[in-house]
Simulated assay, not measured.
Amino acid sequence: MDGNNTHQEITSLVGREVYSNSGVFVGEVEDLQLNVDGQTVTGLALGNLNTELFAEESATGQGVIVPYRWVRAVGDVILINDVVERVRDPDEEETELVA
């Protein structure tokens, strides 16, 4: 029975919205990347992406995979660390610091 509960928890991630720790919408979970041998989730495959963060991927209809190690909390939504800083253009970041 415990294995069945785990299965329900994993599949319940699909469809959840993903936000950065600073509250920026990142995307929506469409699928999971799994390590079958280790029986662990290794990534979240996101679709319905934030077009400001992922302009190229959104324009082509591609998704992105966020490493599961970035996940900080799972509840009604999923919170992750560092996504804005990791995908932001360094020149854009410098401009924001100067302004």
Rank of each mutant, 00 (worst) to 15 (best):
M1K: 10
M1Y: 03
D2R: 10
D2P: 07
G3E: 14
G3F: 11
N5Y: 12
H7P: 00
H7V: 10
E9L: 14
T11D: 12
S12R: 10
S12I: 05
L13D: 05
L13F: 02
L13V: 07
V14E: 05
G15I: 11
R16C: 09
R16L: 15
E17R: 15
E17I: 03
E17D: 15
V18A: 06
V18T: 08
Y19M: 10
N21L: 13
S22K: 05
G23L: 10
V24F: 02
V24Y: 04
V24H: 05
F25M: 14
F25G: 11
F25C: 06
G27E: 04
E28P: 05
E28K: 15
E28G: 00
E30Q: 15
L32E: 10
Q33V: 15
Q33Y: 02
Q33I: 05
L34I: 15
V36K: 15
V36H: 08
V36E: 14
G38F: 09
Q39W: 00
Q39S: 13
T42V: 13
G43D: 05
G43K: 02
G43Q: 06
L44C: 07
L44F: 08
A45P: 00
L46I: 03
L46K: 02
L46G: 03
G47L: 03
L49I: 03
N50S: 09
T51M: 02
T51Y: 06
T51R: 08
E52C: 01
E52D: 14
E52G: 10
E52L: 11
E52R: 09
L53V: 11
L53D: 08
E56V: 06
E57A: 09
E57S: 09
S58E: 09
A59C: 01
A59G: 06
A59N: 08
T60F: 06
T60A: 12
T60L: 07
G61C: 06
Q62F: 08
V64N: 12
V66W: 01
P67I: 01
P67M: 04
Y68K: 07
Y68N: 11
R69A: 13
R69D: 13
W70A: 01
W70N: 02
R72Q: 14
A73K: 14
V74T: 09
V74R: 00
G75A: 15
G75Q: 09
D76R: 12
D76F: 05
D76N: 12
V77L: 03
I78H: 10
L79N: 11
L79M: 09
I80Y: 07
N81F: 02
D82N: 15
D82H: 07
V84K: 10
V84C: 11
V87F: 07
V87A: 02
R88A: 15
D89G: 00
D89W: 01
E93R: 02
E93S: 04
E94N: 01
E94R: 01
T95N: 02
E96M: 07
L97A: 09
L97M: 15
V98G: 04
V98M: 05
A99I: 08
